[in-house]
Every structure is written in C-alpha cells, then in structure tokens.
C-alpha cells in the first residue's frame, strides 16, 4: 500500500474524504433528492487510480460511521469502495477523456451500486432509509415486489442519477484544475483535456 502511492495521492485522500462528508451534509441541508456523498471518492479514482479510489470510498463510510456522526453509513462501506474502484478503472480505460464516456461510466457505477447495496439495505435496514425515497419502496411493496426487489427498485431509481451527477461534477472540477497540479497525479495521462 505504501509503495503504490505518491505523497500527493496520500495528501489527497483525507481531503477527498472530508469533501465527501462536507458536501454530503450540504445536500442534506438543501434537501435534494440526491446524495452526492462520493464526489471526493470519484475524484480520487479519476486522479489517482482504482486502489486509491477504493480506499477513499471505503474509509469515508467507516470514518463517517465510527466517528458516531452517521453510524448507518458504515455497513455500506464496500459499496463506496466499489464506486471509487470503478471510477479508477473507467479512468484507466481512457473514458474520462470525453464527458460522454465518463457520464456512461457514472451510470454503470450507479447500477452496480444499486445491485450491491440492496442486500445490506434489505437485511440490516429492512429495505428503508427513513428518507423520501422510501415512497418508491412502499409503492413496489404494495404492487407485490419482495423486500429485496423493492429495495433494489429504490436503488435503481436513485443511484444511477446520483452517480451520473457525481461523475459529471468531478469531470468539470478536474478540467478546471491547473495543469501544473494535474500532471503530478498518477493518472495524469488519462485526465480530460
């Protein structure tokens, strides 16, 4: 782990986790139907690669939970880790060079997140989040869907949209970064022009 990171990546990760948390909380304040709590994770995936993205995502949920502020996020740490991993892989595939491919990467990440978060959501949390999107769960249950299907249904409605927005925001931010900083990250050659 120590070898594969340059110091810039190491300095970036805690900042990215703090970005996840700060923006995640602004969104709650603005009462928006998205989460946007993985902007930092996707940013690290894009700038520093899949492993750094994976660590950023996983640690975000663990720190957010173990600090006692949002303990309900911790069981989903593996979902956040996969989001960072996928952002890193899509970046290495060169998908970040155009916004269209990168947006598609966001949609795919959202679908994967919905699929892998559903079991934990159904088993630990009874399929609900205590937020507005629970109406979707209610509607699906009322029309005869099982708990797992209804939970997945809720995820597949909200996650792809959320990750699409996250990926696009990150892309715009990275394009605005000064060149002298961009070239110092491990993924410099894969970044948007």
């Amino acid at each position: 782990m120590q070898r594969s990171f340059n110091t810039l990546t190491l300095a970036l990760i805690p900042v990215a986790i703090a970005i996840n948390i700060a923006i995640g909380q602004i969104i709650v304040l603005l009462k928006l139907p998205v989460y946007l709590d993985s902007i930092g994770t996707v940013l690290v995936g894009l700038l520093a690669g899949p492993i750094a993205g994976l660590i950023t995502g996983g640690l975000t949920n663990i720190i957010w939970g173990v600090s006692g502020l949002n303990p309900q996020y911790t069981p989903f740490f593996y979902v956040a880790a996969v989001i960072g991993l996928m952002a890193g892989i899509f970046a290495r595939l060169g998908w970040a060079r155009t916004i269209w491919m990168w947006a598609l990467g966001g949609l795919i990440t959202g679908v994967v997140a919905a699929i892998i978060s559903a079991p934990t959501s159904a088993i630990v949390f009874g399929g609900v989040t205590g937020a507005g999107t629970d109406l979707i769960v209610a509607a699906l249950r009322a029309s005869g869907a099982g708990i797992m299907q209804a939970t997945f249904g809720q995820g597949i409605v909200s996650d792809p949209l959320d990750k699409l927005a996250t990926f696009v925001i990150v892309w715009l931010i990275v394009r605005a970064l000064p060149l002298r900083l961009r070239v110092r990250f491990p993924n410099a050659e894969y970044l948007p022009k």
């Binding site: 810039l8 300095a11 900042v15 923006i23 009462k31 970064l177």
Partner: peptide, 29 residues
C-alpha cells in the same frame, strides 16, 4: 433551483481544497 445552486457551492470547495494539497504533500515529505 436547488440543483442549480449546487455547482457554485461544490466547485469552490473542491477546487480550493485540491490546490491546498500540494502544500500538505510538501509538509509530509
């Protein structure tokens, strides 16, 4: 309207903090 308010909030926060990390990296080294 609230979605439109998002970018002017998110971009300054993220850009400002990424530019800071160069200094953090130097401090670590």
């Amino acid at each position: 309207r609230r979605v439109a308010a998002l970018l002017p909030l998110v971009v300054p926060l993220v850009l400002g903090s990424i530019i800071d990390i160069e200094e953090r990296a130097m401090a670590l080294d």
